[in-house]
Amino acid sequence: MTFKPTWNNMFSLRFFRKALSFLLLHISMQFFIPPAFRPFLLKRCGVKFKKSKTVFIGTNVLFDIMKKSNTHIGDNVYITTGVKIINHYPIISQDGVSEFKTGDIIIGDNVFIGMNSLIVKPVTIGDNAVIGAGSVVTRDIPENTIVAGNPAKIINHVDKV
Rank of each mutant, 00 (worst) to 15 (best):
K121G: 01
K18A: 05
T80F: 01
K43N: 11
M115D: 00
S12K: 13
L42A: 13
F32P: 03
K160A: 14
Q30F: 00
F63W: 11
I105A: 03
K18L: 05
N144H: 09
D95R: 10
D140K: 00
Q94L: 15
M66A: 07
F32Q: 07
K121A: 06
G82D: 01
T2Y: 11
D109S: 08
F100N: 14
L13D: 04
S28V: 09
Q30E: 06
T102V: 11
N60R: 12
T54R: 13
P39E: 02
H88C: 09
N116F: 14
I65A: 05
V158Y: 14
D95T: 09
F49C: 08
K51W: 04
I57Q: 04
Q30A: 02
Y78W: 12
I105L: 03
V55M: 03
R44V: 02
P122A: 13
T54L: 12
V123Q: 06
K67R: 14
L62F: 11
G82H: 01
T54A: 08
I146Y: 13
V97W: 06
A152H: 08
N144W: 05
K4M: 02
A148F: 00
V137L: 01
V55N: 02
D127N: 15
V83D: 06
S69T: 09
K51D: 14
L24G: 05
I141S: 09
D95W: 08
I85R: 06
V83W: 07
T124E: 04
H26G: 00
A36L: 14
K4D: 02
I85T: 06
K84P: 00
V83A: 07
Y89D: 06
D95G: 12
K101R: 12
P5F: 09
M10Y: 15
N8V: 09
S12G: 14
